[in-house]
Computed example of a mutant assay.
Amino acid sequence: MSLELPIPIAAYVAANARLDIDGMLAPFAADAVLRDNGAVLQGHAELRHLFEEAVVAVRAIFTPDTVRHEDDQVVVEGPAHGDFKGSPIRFTYRFTLENDVIKALEITA
């Protein structure tokens, strides 16, 4: 089953599947905010560091299996598989889009 994801989210997911950091960053606004596991990161430099350390280093690939709209967010859920403790872990990604880019992302397990 193929999910109908908004273009910036689909681009992020596709780049994550390739472990392509530049591709993962491309759909984010320059000042995007990412909340993950209590940490709040802002901007491409901080996001790049997170992607290098918490995604590519452990080969974490998110495979969405559901998508829904809640208020002004696109909520995408699915497992992430990789070389990390507890893999696979089911995650919820709450994307806020603005002008065809990802303005904010909150990730919870």
Rank of each mutant, 00 (worst) to 15 (best):
F91P: 02
A109L: 11
L34T: 05
G38K: 06
D31G: 12
R59Y: 07
R35V: 14
E77R: 15
V56M: 08
I107E: 03
H69A: 11
D31W: 10
K85M: 10
D100T: 12
D31K: 12
E77S: 11
R48K: 14
L47N: 01
D71W: 12
A45Q: 13
G38L: 08
I9M: 06
A57Q: 11
N37I: 06
A14W: 09
V33D: 11
V74Q: 00
E98G: 12
R94H: 04
D83Y: 08
R48I: 08
E4M: 14
I89V: 15
A26N: 14
K85S: 09
V40N: 10
L105M: 12
L47H: 01
T96D: 10
N16M: 07
D65Q: 14
A80G: 03
A57W: 00
E53F: 00
A109N: 10
V58S: 03
N99I: 08
R94E: 03
A26F: 10
A15S: 13
L41W: 06
H81V: 11
E77H: 09
E98A: 15
A15H: 07
A11H: 12
N37R: 12
T66N: 14
V13G: 04
A45G: 04
F28D: 05
Q42M: 02
N37T: 12
V40D: 03
P6A: 10
I107G: 01
H44K: 13
A104W: 04
V55I: 06
D36N: 13
P6V: 11
T96W: 12
T108A: 13
Q73D: 13
A32L: 04
M24H: 01
E4D: 15
D72G: 02
L34Y: 08
P79H: 05
I21K: 04
A26W: 00
H81W: 03
P27Y: 02
I9Q: 01
A26Y: 07
F62Y: 15
D20F: 01
A57D: 12
P79D: 14
R59P: 05
I7K: 15
A32H: 00
D72P: 02
K103C: 06
R35W: 11
E52M: 03
A30D: 15
A57H: 11
D31V: 09
T96C: 10
V13R: 05
P64R: 08
E53N: 10
A26Q: 11
L3Q: 06
A11N: 11
K103R: 14
T96L: 14
T96S: 15
H81F: 09
V76I: 03
M24E: 04
L105R: 01
F91A: 00
G78C: 08
D22S: 06
F51H: 04
F51V: 04
L97N: 05
A54P: 02
R68M: 04
A54F: 07
L97R: 03
P6N: 09
D83W: 11
F95N: 03
A17Y: 04
L34R: 07
M24A: 01
V58G: 02
L97E: 03
A17L: 10
T63Y: 05
L34E: 05
V40A: 10
P6F: 07
E70T: 11
A17G: 10
A30E: 15
G43Q: 01
D65K: 10
D83E: 13
I61Q: 09
